[in-house]
């Protein structure tokens, strides 16, 4: 009797859990998971998008090894992520700290910093390319006239500066959103903690490192995972700003996969590229989750 009750209770619990999951899971499985699995399976196939699909074995992966563009785009992807993730975190955290101060017009200023996140990418790309235009842009004009730099960077038109330019615009655009997440995190820190620390004679700096930063770790954890994933699959911004150029200077993995699929009609190879991307991101994410217990504290 007792045992039976237990199992049915367990069974019930499971049913309840599934009922919570189901509405989302059905949609997710049908419209995302199945196409994803299909797309990843394509990495073992030859497909031009129209004719019959044929089995290719590991051919697509062997091709990756000798593909120079793949190597370049892989390095570029790491470059972009290594630049964007830490800088965005620092900028958005700094902003959140500043905008958490009791100052006048705080809401308006927050909205201003949130502005870029909302703007349409087509317009943003055009505007930034113009502002950073090597010869006609206001930024280079200031660099030349005010700071007397004879040869200012040629920004998106130069092989060396194109990636930093994209990184800057990306930070500009997304900072506001992550700032919001940090702001929410900051509100959750109980004030008593600071008061207690003040009584113990802790300074502002100490408060920041001993209380604020540790209390914000869940936010930082979330932000870093989301940022890493979105950086590795960066596409839109680069596509509209530089198209992967000049040459292949900003060609990242997804841009390469896209070109292979929609310009060369090699969907199998394109899937192989994405599978590599997928594995990299998954590894990083799993490592982040593993390390979660070490530095993230849920109070």
């Amino acid at each position: 009797m007792n045992k039976k009750g237990n199992t049915s209770l367990l069974y019930n619990k499971r049913l309840v859990a599934y009922s919570f999951l189901l509405p989302n899971f059905i949609g997710f499985a049908v419209f995302t998971l199945i196409p994803v699995v299909f797309a990843l399976a394509l990495s073992l196939m030859n497909w031009d998008g129209a004719n019959e699909i044929t089995f290719a074995g590991l051919k697509n992966f062997r091709e990756l090894i000798s593909d120079e563009t793949f190597r370049i785009s892989l390095l570029n992807t790491f470059y972009y992520s290594a630049g964007t993730v830490p800088l965005t975190i620092i900028c958005s955290l700094g902003l959140a700290l500043l905008l958490n101060q009791p100052i006048k017009g705080r809401n308006a200023i927050r909205a201003v910093y949130f502005f870029p996140y909302v703007a349409s990418l087509v317009a943003v790309a055009v505007v930034w390319n113009m502002i950073l235009n090597p010869t006609m842009g206001p930024v280079n004009e200031i660099l030349q006239k005010v700071f007397h730099i004879a040869k200012p960077p040629r920004w998106s038109a130069s092989v060396d500066w194109a990636m930093p330019t994209v990184i800057i615009v990306s930070i500009w655009k997304n900072m506001g959103y992550y700032m919001i997440i940090y702001l929410a995190g900051l509100q959750g820190i109980p004030r008593e903690l600071y008061e207690a620390a003040k009584v113990d004679g802790a300074g502002n700096l100490q408060c920041f490192f001993r209380i604020t930063l540790p209390m914000l770790t869940p936010s930082t954890f979330f932000v870093s995972i989301m940022l890493t994933i979105s950086c590795f699959k960066i596409f839109d911004l680069i596509f509209v700003m530089t198209g992967g150029g000049p040459g292949r200077a900003t060609n990242v993995l997804v841009v390469h996969a896209y070109n292979v699929a929609f310009k060369n009609f090699n969907f199998g190879y394109s899937s192989a590229i994405s599978l590599v991307l997928f594995i990299i991101v998954l590894c990083i994410t799993i490592i982040q989750f593993r390390m979660e217990k070490k530095w993230v504290s849920y109070f």
Partner: peptide, 10 residues
């Protein structure tokens, strides 16, 4: 005109 400026400036 300079190619880079044309390209970057659309």
């Amino acid at each position: 005109m300079d190619y880079a400026s044309l390209k970057a400036g659309n």
